[in-house]
Design a protein around this nucleic acid. Sequence first.
DNA 1: GATGAATGAGCTTTCATTCAT
DNA 2: TATGAATGAAAGCTCATTCAT
Lengths: 200, 200, 200, 200
Amino acid sequence: MGGTMDGTKQQRRGNTRQRIQDVALGLFAEQGYEKTSLREIAERLDVTKAALYYHFKTKEEIIVSLFEDLTKPIEDLIEWGRRQPGTLETKEEIIRRYGEALAGAEPLFRFMQENQATVRELRIGDTFKDWMRGLRDILIDPDAELVDQVRSVSAMFTLHAGMFVMRDLEGDSEKKREAVLEVALDMIRQAHEHARHKGD
Amino acid sequence: MGGTMDGTKQQRRGNTRQRIQDVALGLFAEQGYEKTSLREIAERLDVTKAALYYHFKTKEEIIVSLFEDLTKPIEDLIEWGRRQPGTLETKEEIIRRYGEALAGAEPLFRFMQENQATVRELRIGDTFKDWMRGLRDILIDPDAELVDQVRSVSAMFTLHAGMFVMRDLEGDSEKKREAVLEVALDMIRQAHEHARHKGD
Amino acid sequence: MGGTMDGTKQQRRGNTRQRIQDVALGLFAEQGYEKTSLREIAERLDVTKAALYYHFKTKEEIIVSLFEDLTKPIEDLIEWGRRQPGTLETKEEIIRRYGEALAGAEPLFRFMQENQATVRELRIGDTFKDWMRGLRDILIDPDAELVDQVRSVSAMFTLHAGMFVMRDLEGDSEKKREAVLEVALDMIRQAHEHARHKGD
Amino acid sequence: MGGTMDGTKQQRRGNTRQRIQDVALGLFAEQGYEKTSLREIAERLDVTKAALYYHFKTKEEIIVSLFEDLTKPIEDLIEWGRRQPGTLETKEEIIRRYGEALAGAEPLFRFMQENQATVRELRIGDTFKDWMRGLRDILIDPDAELVDQVRSVSAMFTLHAGMFVMRDLEGDSEKKREAVLEVALDMIRQAHEHARHKGD
DNA sequence: GATGAATGAGCTTTCATTCAT
DNA sequence: TATGAATGAAAGCTCATTCAT
C-alpha cells in the first residue's frame, strides 16, 4: 500500500475541494440547483455529505465559490472596458472577449442562464445584474436611439443564445461559434454606425 | 353592477381553479417553481393544500395547465407559419405575432425563461423545444449561410430578451417594445436579403 | 307507483348500496382494506365519494355491513351446533356446513384471512373471535387429550387453508373441495375416536 | 454488568438499527403494517423520523430487512429438504424443523400471517409464496392421492395455526407446542403411509 | 340520491445542516 | 480530513369525512 504510484487516495488529497466544485457544477447545470441535493453530490464523489461541509459552509457557498473562481475574466473585462474610450474598436473587443469568457466557463453560464430564478435569490444574483449593466453601459451610447440601444443589448444576448440554442443547429461547432460572433459584431457595428451619423 | 363590492366569499365560488392558476403563476414567476410550495399558494388563497389537490392532481399539473391554457396562440402561429410560403412577408409576420404572443402571456414566458432547468424536466419541456424548432424551421432557409441562420435565431431571441432585460433600460415601455420589434425585424430582413442574393 | 314489484325506482334503491358492497369487497379482498380508498371504490362505480356516504356512514360500515349480510349462515350454524348433542355426527355436520359457509362467501373470508390485523381492530374483530371460540367449543370435548383438541381445531383450519392455498395445487376444483372436506372430517373423527376410548 | 444503570443514551449508540427493527416488528405485528406509522416507531424510540431514514431507505425496507434477517433458517431448511430423499424421515424432519423455525421468529410470522394482503404487495410477497411451494413440493408425492396431498399441506398449516390460534386454548404452552407438532407429524405420516400402499 | 367543493389530520419522504469523534 | 449519526423543518400528497345544494 505504502504510497507508490499515486493510488487514487494520494492524488485526491488536497483537491477534494476542486472535485466537489466540478461535480457540483456538472449536476447544477444538468438538473438545476434546487433539484441537485448534497447527497447526490456526495454520492458521486464517494464521500459523505459531512465531508462537503468541511470544505464549504453551505450549499450556496459551493455555487458562490464557483462563481468567484470562474468569473474573474468577466470582471476584468468590465474593468478594462470601463477605462477604454467608447470607440467601435473597444466595443468589438468587448464582444469578442465576452464571447470567449462565456465559452471558457460554459457550464457555469449555462447554469446561470437556466436557473435565473434561483440565481436571483442567491447572493450572487446582484453581481450578475451588475455585470449585465456594466457591459451594457460600455456598449451603449447613452444618447443613442432606443433602437440602437436594443441592438447593443441584443448583441450580447446573441452570444448567450449562441451557447445553448445553436446546439441543435447543425454544422461544425467551431464554425458556428464564428458565425455567432460575426452576427454579434455586426449588430454592434450597426448600432455604432447609426450613432455616428446622428452625432454628425 | 348588481351586488356592489360583492364580498370576497361570494365571488370565489366556482372560480377557485382559476384563482389557483393565477396565484401559482405569479409565485412561480417570482420565486421559481421549486421554491414555491403548495402551502404558500394555498395560504395566499386562504384555502387548504388539500383544496389544491381537488383541482389539480399534482403540482406539475398546475404549471402544465397554465401552459396548455396560455400557449394556444403560439401553437396556432407555428401551424399557420408552416403553411405559408417562405417569403420575407411570412417571416416578418411570424416575428410580429410571436412578439405579441410573448407579450400576451408575459408571466408564463418569464417563468419559462427563468426556470429552464426545471421546465426541461417537466412534461412540457419537450413541447417547448418543439416550438423553438418549429419557429426556427420557418424562419431559416436551410441552404442559407450559417451566419444568416444565426441571425434568424437571434431575431427570435431578441424578442425573448426584450421581455426581461429591457426592463432596466430606461424609456417608455411601449416605445421599447416597438424598438425591440424593429431590431428583430431588421435582423430577419438582413438574413433574408443575403439569402436572396446568394440565390441569384 | 304504490309499491308494485320492481318499478325501476324501487329496484335501484338498495341496488347502489349493493353495488358498493360488491365493488368494495372485491377491492378489499384484492388489495386489503387499508390500501383500498373510497376514491377508488367510487371511481370504479362511476359515482362520487360523497355518494358512498349517502349509503354508508363510514368506511368501516361498508365492511361491517358485508360482514352482517354474509355471515348469517355461520351464526346460524353455531346456534344450531350448540343445541345438538356432542356426538360425532354433530361434529361432522358442523365441519360439512362450515365448509359450505366458507365457500358461499369466499371473497369475504379471504378478506378476513388476509387482513386479520385490520379485522382485529375493526368492530367486527370480536365477533370473529367469538365464532372461532363457538365452533371450537362445539367440536372439542373439554376433557379430551390436548392432542385431540389440537386435531379438532386443525380440522377447522384445514377448511380455511383449503380456500386459499389449495388454489395452486393442481386438479379439478370440485375434487379439491371434496378432498379438503374429507381430510377435515377425518381429523375430527380421529379426535372423537380417541376421546371415546379414553372415556371407556 | 459493568456500568450499572447504564444510562439509556450510552447504550443506544451503535445499535439503533436493531432497535428500529425490534420496535417496528413489534408494532407491525400488533397493529398491522399500514396502521403503523413511522412517527409512531420514531416516538417509541425517542428519535426523529429522519433518523429512521438514516438507517433504512424506506418503510418497506424495514420490513424487508427483518425478513432477510429472520428467514435464513427457513431458506436453509428448504435447501436441505430438496437434497434429501423423499422418505418419511425427511418429511418428519422438515415438519419438525419448520415448527422450530416458526417458533424462532414468532412475531415476524404472526405479522406475515395477519398481513397477508400487505405482504403480497410488498417485495417479499413472492419469496413467501416460493417457500410455501418449496415446502409443499418436498412434502408431497406428486402421484399421491389428492386427499393425501391435502393432508400434507394441512400439516404445514397446522403448524401455522398452532402459533396463533392455540393461544386461547388453555394449557401449558410447551405442552401445546408438542401437541401441535404431534398432530402435524401424524398427518404427514398418514399421507405418506397411503402413498406407500398405493405404490405396492 | 347524489354532487362539488373543501377540510383537517396525517402520511412517507427529502433536505440542508450539525457535531462528536 | 473526514465520517456516523442524527435533527428540524418542510415538502408533496392522500385519505376519510362533511355539508350545502
